[in-house]
């Protein structure tokens, strides 16, 4: 497998106003191969979400260098980061990150709107994907009228709609009951089997077991990794 993402010496320091600086990541080195599925575990405040945010171009790192398909030689602008999020990455969040008073269709459509996909193509792509994920009947329903499992399926559809190479999932099953969790895990597994690169942040060993590789992060440093044989 070829190297898809590489982080070298990544540091992230927060400088809250009138408070002591916090170092969330301390010299993180990480290589992710194309098509790989990685689980990142760690206690609350260990820096796993920060790492996910940096991988997902949600925020800048303070120091270090990053390779994402190609070497990133400069600090990306807000627009360039937005384009990366839109074109290259899909996000699945614990709280679903959906607009509750909009329909599933409108939520799934957002990345396509920002990618300037024509209306007709948007409709076709949403139809095809919703059939595949079994949420066709939910498209017109408002998100706040759905169950947790339905919401997460809609969130997964939104993450996949622009056909990104990388899926970042932050505790994707954290807000779900046991049965729904297994459904969502199966869905994530099938996405991985289609060749997508997936990074999951989780506390749940059962979810972490799905991954090809597990990384444990503690106090902003990657401590060890476990590879599936």
């Amino acid at each position: 497998m070829t190297t898809y993402i590489e982080l070298k010496g990544i540091r992230k320091t927060y400088h809250p106003a009138r408070k002591v600086s916090v170092e969330a990541l301390r010299s993180v080195d990480l290589e992710i191969k194309k098509g790989e599925m990685i689980a990142i575990t760690g206690v609350s405040g260990s820096g796993k979400s920060t790492l996910l945010h940096i991988l997902g171009f949600l925020e800048h790192y303070s120091e270090g260098s990053m390779f994402f398909e190609t070497a990133i030689s400069h600090k990306l602008s807000a627009t360039e980061m937005a384009k990366m999020r839109n074109q290259k990455i899909g996000f699945i969040m614990q709280d679903f990150a959906l607009i509750p008073y909009r329909s599933a269709y409108e939520n799934i459509e957002l990345p396509l709107i920002f990618a300037k996909v024509p209306r007709k193509d948007r409709r076709n792509r949403i139809r095809v994907l919703s059939e595949k994920l079994g949420i066709k009947d939910l498209l017109r329903r408002k998100v706040n009228q759905m169950s947790g499992g339905q919401k997460q399926r809609v969130a997964i559809a939104r993450a996949l709609i622009n056909d990104p190479e990388l899926i970042l999932a932050d505790e994707p099953t954290g807000a779900l009951d046991r049965k729904t969790k297994h459904d969502v895990m199966a869905l994530i597994k099938s996405i991985h089997e289609e060749g997508k690169t997936i990074v999951i942040v989780t506390h749940d060993p059962e979810v972490a077991e799905l991954a090809d590789r597990q990384l444990h992060i503690d106090d902003g440093t990657i401590e060890y990794g476990v590879c599936k044989l």
Binding site: L58, A82, A97, P100, P111, F114, A115
Partner: peptide, 16 residues
């Protein structure tokens, strides 16, 4: 704010 954060996640800069 929640809606804006979803837009941000979906691919537009926060300013927009």
């Amino acid at each position: 704010r929640k809606e804006m954060s979803v837009w941000y996640l979906s691919g537009i800069p926060w300013k927009n």
